[in-house]
């Protein structure tokens, strides 16, 4: 229907974004009637998301004409931004930013590097930046989830943790059940995404490739490869994040420093 009022291009895009925004606004109003206040966070996220994606789109236009190495800078910038956002969700955890940054950089860096080397991701900016951004964004979500879950597990079990420390158990062994829980919980969304692929959802990348005229079977297999890459990167991110936070949870004298009151 919108096509009848707007010509193709930026005007049509803005109209589509406006229509979706109205829908989100309606959801926020319904939630408000139930006493759930999402107004501020939703509106800030919507405006930020729109501005950021438009800026990125504009930057991509410039980058596509630039040298290939600039994609590395863009991906590095995304990793830093991702670590900043993940750390914001992990208040109360000492060194949350550096933990997130190392986790995201290692998880997504290894996967993007290896897949680019093998040719699964084309080395060109037009392929490397969008696919890389999907991998980094998922690593960021995984890092947030792993940090949050580990923090709640440990602070919810301080009695058990200190009982084990008092029995002379090594800190790594003390928190190993919580590391396992945090890694598993942080990967659930990605495992669900992979197992529901094609049944519950057809991701945008595949839809875009098909619309652009790519063979649908190749598009489907490539989409699987991307989702599997995301799972791989997220797994590495989660492992590195939880291993690092495990060290920060204790002092050099093996005292628990991750405490509820620090949150």
């Amino acid at each position: 229907m919108l096509e009848q009022f707007f010509e193709e291009g930026i005007a049509l895009g803005l109209a589509q974004a406006g229509a979706v925004s109205v829908l989100v606004l309606a959801t926020v109003l319904v939630a408000r009637r139930q006493g759930i206040h999402l107004e501020k966070e939703s509106s800030v996220a919507m405006v930020r998301g729109l501005v950021q994606i438009v800026v990125v789109g504009s930057v991509l236009v410039l980058l596509l004409q630039g040298p290939q190495w600039t994609s590395v800078l863009v991906l590095a910038g995304m990793m830093i931004a991702g670590a900043t956002i993940a750390a914001r969700r992990a208040r109360g955890i000492p060194g949350a930013f550096s933990i997130s940054l190392y986790g995201i950089a290692f998880g997504s860096g290894v996967v993007i590097g290896a897949m680019t080397f093998l040719g699964v991701i084309e080395a060109g900016i037009s392929s490397l930046v969008p696919v890389g951004s999907m991998v980094i964004a998922s690593a960021m979500r995984t890092s947030s989830l792993a940090l949050d879950r580990f923090h709640s597990e440990v602070t919810g079990h301080t009695g058990e943790v200190e009982t084990k420390l008092s029995l002379g158990v090594a800190p790594a062994a003390v928190v190993s059940p919580y590391v396992e829980t945090a890694v598993t919980a942080s990967l659930i969304p990605h495992i669900d995404s992979l197992s529901s692929l094609g049944i519950v959802w057809i991701p945008g990348l595949m839809a875009g490739m098909v619309l652009a005229g790519t063979d649908p079977v190749y598009a489907a297999v490539y989409q699987f490869a991307v989702i599997a890459m995301i799972l791989g990167a997220s797994g590495l991110t989660s492992l590195v994040t939880t291993l690092l936070i495990r060290q920060r949870a204790f002092s050099a004298a093996e005292q628990l420093v991750l405490r509820p009151e620090a949150a």
């Binding site: 009695g159 058990e160 420390l165 002379g168 158990v169 090594a170 093996e254």
Partner: peptide, 17 residues
Amino acid sequence: APRELRRRVGMVSQRPF
């Protein structure tokens, strides 16, 4: 070493955990 210390100086807390 903290682990040696805690083995030698054992603790029983209010709740058994």
